[in-house]
């Protein structure tokens, strides 16, 4: 078995605005099963970060436990990383985000990691609007521990073990909407044209961005009877719209007739351009998104695309008025403002 990817790349490979090749965003050769959807998501993250021209050392990737949570080894080798404890990625991410608001945070989790053991943690990063992209590599099972049903497995879905799932499933996108998330999207590992713009938009979003990515487990949950298999997702996939991410500074050359398209300006000046909007769905209307998800789920369909966005809400930093500088760069003067200031503050309470 190969343990190393050859170091040669296509001689015509581009460099991005800051002089890096896509290769500079890659990681080690994956040890996941051949054909695992998670590897495609890793490839999408690599491409998104390359195209956004984020300096690799300004990114932190944080994960929990699971095949999905192993993937940060397979991308962004030149970035910061913390492979934490099962279900505890949100806590570690919270600490990191509080300590340094200048980095780009990519949280990677699985459906087991987020919807079972980490459910409580998940809920709280959502409601706090922590600045991060939270990517769930959702395969409907515990891949790493040999494929037990997870909490996102649909009732009646039958994986390799051969026993239909008995309990009703948790829809993480729906739940995030209920909990007040301002950026909620769903995608499929096998559709990079859709996934990459969504990751870019999620990274640009000020606050918490959830992307629930269906990511078939080829080994334990890619049976004909599973609702998380490649063929099921492909056959039942629909989308709210086609999202295109237009980075800040670039000229917008949309040719779509008004009404068919919508431009959403992000906090950093970049734009999400949505075209072919599904009728009755409004990306800025939380209720229409919740409705759309429920209706799709009822029909056994998989609704993908950007589900809801509100780019104007304050993130955790604005809510808490956190310091602009990374904690490790604060000097003594800033940390100990002196007796005079203390006196003044105390005086306010007298």
């Amino acid at each position: 078995m190969s343990y190393k990817r050859p170091s040669f790349r296509h001689p015509g490979a581009a460099i991005n605005e800051i002089g890096f090749h896509q290769k500079d965003y890659e990681g080690a050769l994956s040890t996941l099963c051949a054909g695992c959807g998670h590897d495609s998501i890793s490839a999408a993250i690599i491409q998104a970060c390359f195209e956004l021209a984020i300096p690799p050392h300004r990114i932190a990737k944080i994960s929990g436990i699971g095949c999905s949570s192993k993937t940060p080894t397979y991308f962004l080798a030149n970035s910061h990383g913390f492979n934490s404890v099962h279900g505890r990625m949100p806590s570690v991410a919270t600490g990191a985000v509080m300590a340094n608001r200048d980095l780009t945070y990519i949280g990677v989790s699985g459906d087991g990691d987020s919807a079972s053991i980490g459910m409580g943690q998940f809920a709280h990063v959502v409601r706090r609007n922590l600045n991060m992209v939270y990517i769930v590599m959702n395969n409907g099972c515990y891949g790493l521990t040999k494929g037990q049903d997870s909490a996102t497995a649909d009732v009646g879905s039958v994986g390799k073990a051969g026993v239909p799932t008995m309990f009703s499933s948790i829809d993480l996108a729906g739940l995030a909407l209920e909990l007040g998330a301002d950026f909620v999207a769903r995608s499929f590992s096998g559709d990079k044209d859709q996934l990459i713009p969504l990751i870019k938009a999620g990274i640009s979003h000020n606050g918490f961005a959830l992307i629930d990515v269906l990511s078939p487990c080829v080994t334990f949950n890619n049976t004909k009877t599973s609702t998380k298999s490649y063929s099921y997702v492909r056959d039942h996939m629909g989308s709210t719209s086609i999202a295109d991410f237009v980075p800040e500074k670039s000229e917008i050359t949309a040719t779509v007739a008004p009404g068919e398209s919508k431009m959403i300006e992000m906090h950093d000046g970049s734009i999400i351009e949505l075209t072919s909007l599904a009728e009755g769905w409004d990306p800025g209307n939380r209720l229409s998104a919740i409705n759309a998800i429920h209706n799709a789920n009822l029909k056994g369909e998989v609704l993908t695309g950007l589900l809801y966005i509100d780019a104007k809400q304050p993130s955790v930093h604005q809510l808490l008025n956190t310091t602009l500088k990374p904690l490790n760069s604060l000097n003594q003067d800033e940390l100990m403002p002196g007796v005079e200031l203390l006196e003044r503050i105390n005086a306010e309470f007298r």
Binding site: S7, H10, L29, G35, G190, P216, V218, R234
Partner: peptide, 14 residues
């Protein structure tokens, strides 16, 4: 082929 994209993702020279 189940069109999983694994080959596309791994190919070093695209």
């Amino acid at each position: 082929c189940i069109e999983c994209d694994a080959c596309v993702d791994i190919c070093p020279t695209s």
